[in-house]
Design a protein around this nucleic acid. Structure first.
Lengths: 221, 221
DNA sequence: CTGTGTGAAGGAGTTCACAGCG
DNA sequence: CGCTGTGAACTCCTTCACACAG
């Protein structure tokens, strides 16, 4: 039995479960049902059970899931059981905000390097970590065996920088730059494009059944 | 003919087309085929044609789509044909970064208010716009008839603030706070949770067919 | 002859319903 | 009896294949 081909949709829900489980642990809750998790997360109980079933049978029929056991299982599934090391490339507004945010909110992912090409920001600190020049990047990537990079450089530098990251051993990129990176297929890219996301939100802002909205846009129909 | 029930997946792709069309316009390209758009965006040509077909027939058989005409159509479909006014609530790291980013990158969405409860940041400027105290919010919402809010306050304040926004007429929320907002179903919520997104990225960082990764995680299988 | 528009087929994700175990 | 685990049904999105218009 192998776990190839687990849907991306499933993987995206796992961290949601993880967060809820961590929360339950902090309240000393020991057992949780898929029904309870459903109420907390908004996903259906069946879906939660199906998601977990992709990776094995972790529950106890009649009672539910052991919270701590399930949390540890999910950590291992995602690969967060040993703290993951990442670097941030491009420490402008967005890179800075992301870094500060991650330091505070994400115990499972550790930023081990902040890099920028702008000598203006090099030397600045974010919490305990000093921003270094891009030229120092490869050294850190190799020493710390980093596989994940957060790319928050301007659009026109993004492709070049991504190529360099891949050449230096990066296998997954969290990309804030508003361009479609062209990289080997084995590199996983996750794009966060705030402009696009906000624009599509606008569509839904007038009314949820968009009848009125669209009739207005197409007087000709 | 009405346009109810256009899939969210379609709507999310429209801004991608929009950006490419704007780009083509800046290069004085007048006509574009779905094939060309496919190469540029990474979506299949059939999908692009199907997406556009949800809203009418905009192309010319044999040649393609008139770039400017299609751009204007998409603007109207999304509702961006008249600049949309939004406010930003919570101007910490993330709110600040988002605002600066939007000022520069998003010509179609105008930020008309920046609000925070922290008197420390009130008075600061982001580009030409001054950060105001939350107490001023309602006035701006009404005067400018704002329907969309970007919520970037700490998690524990988010629900209370969201309730207030909805009470003041907001119909869509772009939510950066890492909680599930409980709001009336007619309010559209788009969550951007960087911690969750980064965590799920980790899963894909070891290898794209996650066989090895998972066998390692479940030695017992 | 080229490229759009679209019904039909295929594939993927979700929900349903219930068997089965504690 | 309660809650998990899961095949089957269902829904929705994508891809295919081709008719049709310029």
């Amino acid at each position: 039995m192998t776990y190839r081909n687990v849907s991306k949709f499933v993987i995206k829900r796992l961290p949601v479960y993880l967060r809820k489980l961590d929360n339950l642990i902090s309240y000393d809750v020991e057992v949780v049902s898929s029904q309870k998790l459903s109420e907390e997360t908004g996903f259906t109980a069946e879906q939660i059970r199906k998601d977990l079933a992709c990776f094995g049978a972790f529950g106890t029929r009649g009672s539910g899931y052991n919270v701590e056991y399930l949390r540890d299982k999910i950590l291992k599934i995602i690969g967060l059981h040993k703290q993951t090391r990442v670097i941030v490339v491009g420490v402008g507004n967005l890179g800075k905000a992301f870094s500060r945010y991650n330091f505070i909110n994400n115990p499972y992912v550790k930023i081990v390097g902040l890099f920028d090409s702008d000598t203006e920001v090099v030397g600045e600190k974010i919490f305990y970590l000093k921003i270094e020049h891009i030229s120092e990047m490869k050294k850190v990537l190799v020493e710390e065996n980093v596989k994940v990079a957060i790319l928050a450089v301007p659009a026109k530098e993004a492709q070049k920088m991504a190529d360099q990251l891949v050449a230096d051993g990066i296998t997954a990129i969290f990309n804030f730059a508003p361009i479609k990176l062209k990289l080997p297929p084995e590199v996983y890219i996750h794009n966060v494009d705030l402009t696009l996301e906000l624009q599509s939100l606008i569509y839904f802002s007038s009314t949820k059944d968009n009848l009125v909205d669209l009739e207005d846009a197409f007087g000709n129909f």
